[in-house]
């Protein structure tokens, strides 16, 4: 006879390394976006089309880390940290699971393909989605080597060599570690 005593509950396992990597990359992404939005004309052009005080949040479900950014009056992005109140964000992009988030955040999967593969879902008004994706692609073009970035997007954004290296160094040396 089948007895429930022989079938205990099974709790899901943990993937602490991937969770930690995801949280780190979300932090890097947030700080990089804040830094780049001060100087990169392509990002500035996109962000200016977003509503004022628009807050975008990305969150790995269920508790795998998050990042929030708010568009300020001047058309720049401000990093709002990793514990922003989800209910106050205008658009929340949920990365459905730790593995998909890992692939997306570490540059193994492009944003377009991530969406095509249903790695993410979203709450809120999606009318800015394409612009948000362009901003994420531009950011990846700064953060990742050209060879890797080329695999992640259909076409690399037109960033001149000098600006790419200048803003990349600034983001890595000042923007990401110090929020400058």
């Amino acid at each position: 006879m089948i007895s429930k005593e022989n079938y205990p509950d099974i709790q899901p396992g943990k993937k602490p390394v991937k969770r930690a990597v995801n949280k780190t990359f979300l932090f890097v992404l947030g700080r990089a976006l804040q830094s780049l939005s001060k100087h990169d004309p392509l990002i500035q052009h996109e962000v200016q089309s977003w509503p004022e005080n628009f807050t975008l949040m990305m969150k790995v479900r269920p508790n795998g880390g998050s990042v929030a950014l708010t568009r300020t009056d001047g058309g720049r992005l401000i990093y709002r940290g990793a514990s922003f109140d989800e209910a106050k964000a205008d658009v929340v992009i949920f990365l459905k699971d730790v593995e998909g988030a890992f692939d997306l955040l570490t540059g193994q999967l492009g944003i377009d393909m991530g969406y095509a593969r249903h790695c993410m879902c979203a709450r809120g008004d999606l009318s800015n989605t394409v612009s948000v994706v362009r901003v994420l692609n531009i950011t990846q073009a700064y953060l990742f080597p050209r060879l890797l970035a080329r695999r992640l997007m259909k076409r690399l954004p037109p960033i001149p060599w000098g600006r790419r290296w200048g803003l990349r160094l600034k983001a890595y040396l000042l923007g990401i570690p110090f929020g400058i």
Binding site: S49, D112, Y115, L126, T129, V130, S131, M153, R155
Partner: peptide
């Protein structure tokens, strides 16, 4: 057109 959601799934980037 370039901000329409359909553009995302197009095989060629629509600039």
């Amino acid at each position: 057109a370039i901000n329409d959601g359909s553009a995302m799934m197009n095989p060629v980037e629509l600039t």
